Simulated assay, not measured.
Amino acid sequence: FFVFLDLHVMDGCVMTEADGTTRIDIEAAIDENKMRLIEVKMSLIDLVSENPEELDDIFLLRYLLSFPNNEACIEAIRSAVKYRKENASWLASAKEGDRTKAPDYDELKIHMIAGTHKTTVHGAPLLFIRAGLSDTNITMQCVTEEQLVKYVTYEKEVSFWICDRISRKEGKLTKMLAIQDLTNANFLWNDNRFFSALGASSKVSDMIHPQLVQRAVILNAGEGIKILWQVARLFMSKKTMEKICVCTGFSLESTASKCPYASKWTTTAELPSFVGGSCVCEEGCVAGVPNDFVGKRNQGMAKK
């Protein structure tokens, strides 16, 4: 069986009303926040005038919902515009949706056993991470923290614009779902530079990807979740940590579709077999790795 655990409060709990599948109506949310929106737009008149199509009400709404304080909201928007401008050489192509254009894609695809597979019930990206199939010590011998930050940020940027297009088309604020499978993951021997890079990318995402992730669901955590939580708190942003929840139990014994959260946003047909779903893609559902693979895909790679 599964127990839904919100690690932010470290207490067993059931899903909250906000965890349901009802999406925020964009028009209603803009109307509800119209006074804040006017104030923020006035403070950003220079940026809005330069790029009125991109910095429109829907784009700004995500920031209003993520930053209750107007001053913090305005600062985040300015920082996001600056970041995208300064990193346009490698980030701009993400808007086209081609994940293979991520920086150092050929190198990092071997180490990062993660990727989107099918979609949520609303058509948003459904991200799966198989943390137990890669040795982070080897990863950080082959790439730098900066390379890893760019790679992860690019991946999130692709998903952000996919969610943005769906939101605009349907008039409902749409977010992605991340599912992390910790089968065979060992957190005692991980390279801290790996977590440092993930932490840095989470802070970048707070700034440029507001309202992107609905939840980050962890499956097959085992005893290692206590170690993971302690490590994650040192590196990850507060906003990222607040999105994390755990379904305890083992997905192959009790399908992930019975997880209180995953069952609301996915179907058994969308879930790969390694988390108890019915999907078995010919070359593996995620990152070209067979669903029944065990071990470390990057094991034995030459050190730099």
Rank of each mutant, 00 (worst) to 15 (best):
S257N: 11
I58C: 07
P103F: 00
P103N: 03
K175N: 08
P52Q: 09
S263R: 08
G276R: 03
V3M: 07
D19I: 05
F274S: 01
L173M: 14
E54G: 01
D98K: 10
D206Y: 07
V40E: 06
T100W: 14
S49Y: 07
G171H: 11
D31F: 10
V246F: 06
P52R: 12
R233D: 09
S159Q: 12
K243S: 10
N291C: 10
A287S: 12
S237L: 05
V149C: 04
V152Q: 05
P272D: 09
A197L: 06
A29P: 01
D19W: 05
V121L: 13
E54P: 00
T268Y: 08
N192E: 08
G20M: 06
K175R: 14
W161K: 03
I74R: 13
Q141I: 02
N69W: 08
D11L: 14
R297P: 01
I244C: 13
I26V: 15
V204R: 00
R215E: 02
Q230S: 14
H122G: 02
M42W: 15
S205R: 02
E96R: 01
L148H: 06
T266Q: 10
G295W: 12
S273M: 14
L188F: 15
A102T: 01
A197F: 03
E155F: 01
S134P: 02
N291P: 01
G171M: 09
Y63H: 04
L234V: 06
N51D: 14
K258W: 12
G132Q: 02
C245R: 02
E96I: 01
K239I: 10
S237W: 07
V152A: 09
Q299P: 02
K41V: 04
N186H: 15
W229L: 04
K226I: 13
A88W: 00
I179D: 04
G115R: 04
W161M: 03
E170I: 02
E253R: 15
E223M: 12
K169S: 11
E155W: 01
N220L: 07
F59Q: 07
N291D: 15
L219V: 15
F160I: 00
A131F: 05
K303F: 15
K296H: 03
E75L: 07
E96V: 01
A114E: 11
T139I: 09
E54N: 08
P52G: 05
C73F: 05
T183H: 07
D6E: 12
E86V: 00
M207D: 00
I208A: 00
V286L: 07
T120W: 05
A185C: 03
Y154R: 00
S49R: 13
G97C: 03
N220H: 11
F4W: 15
